[in-house]
Write a protein that binds this DNA or RNA. Sequence first.
DNA 1: GCCGTTTTCGGCCCGACTGTTTTCAGTCG
Length: 572
Amino acid sequence: MARANDEAAALIQELADLLSITGGDAFKIRAYEKAARAIAGHPGDIAELDLAGLRAIPSVGSAIAKKVADYNATGTIRQVEELRLRIPAGVRALTAIPTLGPKKALTVYEELGVSSVDELATAIEEGRLSGLKGFGAKTEENILRGIELMRASGGRVLVDAAASVADEIVAALSALPQVERCAHAGSLRRMRETIGDVDVLAASRDPHPIMEVFTALPVVAEVVAGGDKKTSIRTATGLQVDLRVVPPESWGAAMQYFTGSQAHNIRTREIAVRAGLKLSEYGLFHAGSDEPIVSATEEEVYDRLGLPWIHPTLREDTGEIEAALDGTLPDLVTEADLRGDLHSHTDLTDGTASLEAMAAAAASRGLEYYAITDHAPDLVMQRMTDEKTLAQRERIAELQKEYPGLVLLHGTELNIDPDGGVDWDADFLSGFDVCVASVHSHFTQDQAAMTRRLVRACENPHVHVIGHPTARSIGRRPPVDADWDEVFRAAARTGTALEIDSFPDRLDLPADLIRRAKRFGCRFSIDTDAHSLGHHRNIRYGVGTAQRGWLTPDDVINTWPLPRLRAFLKKT
DNA sequence: GCCGTTTTCGGCCCGACTGTTTTCAGTCG
């Protein structure tokens, strides 16, 4: 499943982690981290590159190129193997505990021989940490807390859970007279698929009362840290929320800074430094005099750095800075570009709303076309039959008369069987306007079998969209194992679209695979896969995922006018 | 370890908060 790029990047990142524990040079560690990102984001296959080719990757010099060549030849990197002998994997795992970094991890390992999270918890309970340099009572308490949190939640929540907490807090704070502006930033604004903590930003000259209201909100279970510029709380579910209050004139610089990512910020600050400037959350300044230049809007800050404004979903240092400098940033697809939705369910199968209610919801979204795609018979528990789906087609034709502005399409969500076949024969399939085909069973086939299965589905002339292609469930089920480059090649060749399923626990295709698929010329369909009326709101997460995959409206078939879409669905 | 029309050596992003400290290291984002 993992490409050479991903495996090599993980090894280089591990090298950085291990060096940070053994006390390696901080700049060297950063160089490894930067190179790891560059290798992971490199479009070509690094397994095919020689030393010169590797060195051509930005941030990869001769030393790292040799290590990657080492990986290409042997499947590992010698320095990583050596450091693994000195630092057990459990010690590296300790740094995942909040408030415990590489320095403290090394101290407990060297002084007490602690090399796992469980051992550390035991050591603290037995009082073996007392007297250790830098470990007071408060530190012990915080570590125990951190371990508890880590065990409870795994540390991250789905994007919709974070969004609802953020929306509630932003609404409450925006109502205060002292607050001039308030918005969320951080990984939620970047639309990452899971969120570690929520960042909220407020502009005000009078922070103190804002902090007081914030820490007293009903959602707050615990105050983690409190100052007048920054306050952190935790909700009852363990989600941390950081509130930063900045002067109104700093709003743009602060939004830029707190949206991140950290890697993107390092790049923008480096550009500032080279231009004799200094960029912080308070603004862009002359380096020598600290004279302010701009700070009110993000656009001004980027502009003064010689860059166009960069969409938050692109800010990961995976090529957006270079694209911005080249003037080749994509014109990203937005929710407003979507004319239709090609995947939805009614109470005929496992949806909870009637056909009529789902159509009404689609109309209120302002859509021009909407496909009803209830499950096909091979998903036996859904009890679909030929008769039921044909009766539904007639009801849709009747209902169509009530919606002059919305074209209702009759479709189905087929099941791709282990050999790549689907539920109905060609003759019956030709009666549908649109067919989504998805993997719903046999998730653990080996890579060769799964690849054949998906390629065969693409080659079926009646399959228009591959639904949630990796079939992952975030935090619960891993993605299926396929040679995705082979699948993408088949999808592009046959004119089969790949779905971007908007369900917060799916977000499937994931953004990194979207970006890869686009390079093969694939098309995409951003769908809700709605099973109820409320699920239509999830479309924002599908759009965010598509944006993180650098998609433009033209890449997405359900932004197209219906005649162009119908021509695509013929798969000629 | 990487990188360069200001540099092939000497830089490398910046600030807030906590806890254990008497001036600062560690962690986080």
